[in-house]
Amino acid sequence: MTQLSQLISLLHLASPALPIGSFSYSQGLEAAIECGMVRDAGSAQRWVRSNLLDVQAQCEAPVWLLLYRHWRTLDATRLAEWNDWFHATRESAELRLETEQMGWSLARLVAQMEWGDARLRAQLVALAPVCLPTAFAAACVALDVNERDGLAAYCFSWAENQVSAALKAVPLGQVAGQHILRRLHPAVLETVDEAVRRADAEPPRLSTFSPMLGLLSARHETQYSRLFRS
């Protein structure tokens, strides 16, 4: 596959138009807004950047890389282990529901689009529940996207969804949202670099320590007024 073809595949996977329901989730951001932790463009940018570098880079991003590498070799045992391990790290009912629903939707799309070979699609279908990073890594392997580019697209897509949620819930203007996204570019690259270091360590260096996110997510379950499902 040419570099241009890979780029188009990445744009497809990272597009907000991908029908996996990402627009309906905020991953605790709405609860942070309710608590006053996020109240304007500056605090929204700090929230997203902190979650990239202090949460995504410590666990989800390196796990994504491990999953990607096991998809490359179709190691069914290791894929199931890391998928289940990630699922167990979701601290609240909403965070579990989010990764399950979006993962299922993306796995179904991979099957419907017939991305990759039949063995990869069969293995993806066999995972239940399938988490979002598992399904996204599988899609990248199916479309022959290299691991660093695939992870960058995954992280940017997450950041873009956070900014989109902030536009609606803070609320912010469209230009303010674009400024935030542009300023987050270095954080996305830092997240990828840190994830590679952690995934390459033996054993992988993973940390799920994010108590504030867990508390906010749990509080969101009973929040009086909500736009988002997490």
Rank of each mutant, 00 (worst) to 15 (best):
M1P: 04
Q6R: 04
I8H: 12
S9P: 09
S9E: 10
L11Q: 10
L11P: 06
L13T: 07
L13E: 05
S15G: 07
P16M: 01
P16S: 07
P19S: 04
P19G: 01
G21R: 02
G21I: 10
S26H: 09
L29G: 11
E30Q: 05
A32S: 04
I33H: 10
M37A: 15
S43L: 06
S43C: 11
R46G: 14
R46E: 11
R49C: 10
S50N: 14
N51T: 11
D54Q: 15
Q56M: 01
A57Y: 08
A61D: 04
A61W: 02
V63R: 06
V63H: 08
L66C: 09
L66E: 09
L66Y: 01
L67C: 06
H70P: 00
H70T: 00
T73D: 09
A76Y: 12
T77W: 15
W82A: 15
N83Q: 13
T89Q: 12
E91S: 07
S92A: 06
A93N: 01
E98V: 01
E100A: 02
Q101F: 00
M102N: 10
G103Q: 05
L106N: 00
R108T: 14
V110I: 14
W115L: 07
W115D: 03
D117L: 13
D117R: 05
A118Y: 00
R119N: 05
L120W: 11
V125G: 15
A126M: 03
A128T: 13
P133R: 12
P133W: 00
P133V: 03
F136H: 14
F136N: 15
A137L: 04
C140Q: 13
C140Y: 10
C140T: 03
A142C: 09
N146G: 15
N146L: 00
R148I: 06
D149A: 12
L151D: 04
A153D: 02
A153N: 04
C155W: 10
F156H: 07
F156P: 00
Q162L: 01
S164H: 03
A165Q: 09
A166N: 10
L167F: 13
K168W: 09
V170R: 07
P171F: 07
L172I: 07
L172A: 09
A176T: 15
G177Q: 10
G177F: 08
Q178E: 13
Q178W: 13
H179S: 15
I180W: 14
L181N: 13
R182K: 00
R183T: 03
L184G: 09
H185Q: 03
P186R: 11
P186H: 04
A187S: 11
L189Q: 10
L189G: 12
E190K: 10
T191A: 08
T191Y: 08
V192N: 03
V192D: 00
V196Q: 07
R197F: 15
R197T: 15
A201V: 00
A201Q: 09
E202V: 11
E202N: 01
R205H: 08
S207I: 06
T208C: 13
F209T: 03
F209R: 03
L213C: 01
G214C: 11
R219S: 12
H220N: 06
Q223N: 08
S225F: 11
R226G: 00
R226A: 04
L227P: 06
L227K: 02
R229A: 12
